[in-house]
Design a protein around this nucleic acid. Structure first.
Lengths: 253, 253
DNA sequence: TTCCCGGATAAAGTCATACGATAGAAACAG
DNA sequence: CTGTTTCTATCGTATGACTTTATCCGGGAA
């Protein structure tokens, strides 16, 4: 069975010019290089900066404004919107964060959200899953087992596993949170220590236990086990963040 | 104290031409008038349809593509994306739904999500609230009490109440779910029966109990009471939906 | 017949230019 | 110093030309 991945992947087409411009602007905003309230380069000036036509630039801005990153007000200029206005759960916005340094608070917040949502999703999945859902979840799990730890197919299988559970909830708005879950998983990978065999094996077991509970249609068990999975994942990620912070401190000293 | 409302309100500027076009297209997509896979009017043909320049049209499409509603590919055309790709939690997408007939499944799904998230949010708020948060929540609650039932200021106060609780969680990604909660509240209003004094009073009591729990920093209590609030609200809304369905059936019969 | 390749083609993407409208600053008058 | 006017900068919209890309389709090779 084919793995379902990235149904709700990023919408920005990097092949297109406006997409590259949008990416540049977005990263500058998210890293804080363009602080809140800063005027974006004037639509005429930007020709000199990145030799691109006003059209492409404006379409990039429209794309970003839809996600709340910028606010274009006629005559006064296009400004970076305050962070409270950003749609942090948008797949593109989540993805752009990977171009910035890891923000521990943000990652913790995402895990916190995940801890609220994903156990409930697992509960619903246990109640509502069809056989097709089950196959899809199982295929994803096997993808995690059969590939080398932390390799790309393994990570994709991990993402597919969680996506499949969301899909089994039959709740489309809830499924829109899958990208946020994916982001935390990708952060773990991004931060991964070279050979973390222990955490990987533990993670596999966590996943298997969730899967079994869903097979058995035991909703409370599924929720509880998903909680454990998320907490284990959080702890592992926090460990990696701490290690990274230590390494950074050592280097700068 | 001023009520904080709509921090994360819709980003579409209805004064601008491209905004009107985006709204038109979005409503057609969400109502299903333009079904999945349908080609949007060709960029050249649309001049005849809605006499608007290609520029404005294209910017509207970019805006919608960022929310996953449409997908534009050279040579093949701009198509309506499948619903799984839509960002249903985006404030604009939620708002556009109000232009369509109420979709009971969608509203139930939103309530389900709310039931997973908002009690947890109330729990965090009880733990983390500052005095300023408390003032903001209280101001919103007073706004609900002091205005006539179902009047606009009352509804705004209701929205502000829930937004303020999300704000008190200090978790920005979680706060991004506030628009989804607001949407359910606005649906209740939208469907409201003329004089539903009973439900309104019950709702006030629910809100007061949540507020008290947050004041007392009793996180479990806050979560439990928020659950009750959401369930009561769900039941009330389902009742309105049923009444509406009955009325519709009677009319068509 | 089937398969692969390559050109025709249609649609979106990009560019340059022009003009309109208006928010906000600057200049000015009281 | 304050209120008013003028002016400019900047976004919004329109238009036409050109570029890029993916699909379609037909022809030639296996």
């Amino acid at each position: 069975m084919q793995l379902h991945v990235n149904v709700r992947a990023t919408r920005l087409n990097p092949d297109r010019l406006f997409g590259q411009v949008a990416h540049r602007l977005a990263v500058a905003i998210i890293t804080g290089a363009s602080p809140t309230g800063a005027l974006l380069p004037n639509e005429d000036d930007l020709k000199d900066e990145i030799s691109v036509s006003r059209t492409a630039y404006r379409e990039a801005v429209k794309f970003l404004s839809g996600k709340g990153l910028v606010e274009a007000r006629p005559k006064s200029g296009t400004r970076v919107a305050p962070r409270e206005a950003w749609n942090l759960l948008d797949p593109d916005v989540l993805a752009w964060h990977f171009a910035a340094d890891p923000n521990e608070k943000f990652i913790r917040d995402l895990f916190e959200l995940r801890l609220f949502v994903e156990p409930s999703a697992a509960r619903l999945a246990a109640q509502r899953r069809s056989d097709a859902d089950l196959k899809r979840i199982e295929a994803a799990f096997r993808g995690m087992v059969e590939n080398p730890p932390y390799a790309e197919p393994t990570v994709n299988a991990d993402l597919a596993f969680h996506e499949a559970i969301f899909a089994a909830t039959r709740n489309p708005p809830l499924q829109c949170l899958a990208p946020a879950v994916s982001a935390t998983i990708q952060w773990s990978l991004f931060l991964k220590a070279p050979d973390d065999q222990f955490f990987f094996t533990a993670s596999l077991i966590d996943h298997e236990r969730v899967f079994d509970a869903i097979v058995q249609r035991d909703s409370d068990l599924a929720a509880a086990r998903m909680s454990s999975l998320v907490i284990d994942s959080l702890n592992s990620t926090l460990g990696l963040l701490a290690a990274r912070a230590q390494a950074g401190a050592a280097k700068s000293a």
